[in-house]
């Protein structure tokens, strides 16, 4: 691997780590709700999403979970349950699509 490729890889990893660690700051107090709505708005079309789109949505769900975990108890209980429903559906459709691809 060349030095440039190594540097690019490190930068990409650092970027991903920042995105993973900083969702709270990035979304603000109410911003995460808009992100929740946008992320879970596609459950009706889950079967028409690509593997890449489903993976992205699952990444957004994982980031949201971290923010919701820091909220007060009642809100946390409601939104973790709601997030679980949409995340599980995406994960389930993703698994189905991967199996489909694998069997072709």
């Amino acid at each position: 691997m060349t030095t440039l490729a190594r540097k690019l890889r490190s930068a990409a990893l650092a970027g991903a780590l920042c995105l993973w660690l900083l969702p709270e700051g990035a979304w603000g107090e109410e911003g995460w709700r808009a992100e929740f709505d946008a992320t879970c708005a596609q459950t009706n079309d889950a079967m028409s999403l690509s593997v890449q789109e489903l993976n992205q949505l699952l990444g957004r769900c994982a980031a949201l979970e971290k923010v919701i975990d820091t909220q007060e108890e009642s809100l946390r209980k409601v939104y973790l349950k709601r997030l679980q429903l949409c995340r599980n559906l995406y994960a389930y459709v993703l698994e189905y699509k991967k199996n489909e691809q694998g069997s072709k």
């Binding site: 459950t43 079967m47 429903l85 599980n88 559906l89 994960a91 389930y92 459709v93």
Partner: peptide
């Protein structure tokens, strides 16, 4: 979709 899948019915 999400109320039944995958919690109640696992198969698509």
């Amino acid at each position: 979709c999400e109320l039944c899948h995958p919690d109640i019915f696992v198969g698509i």
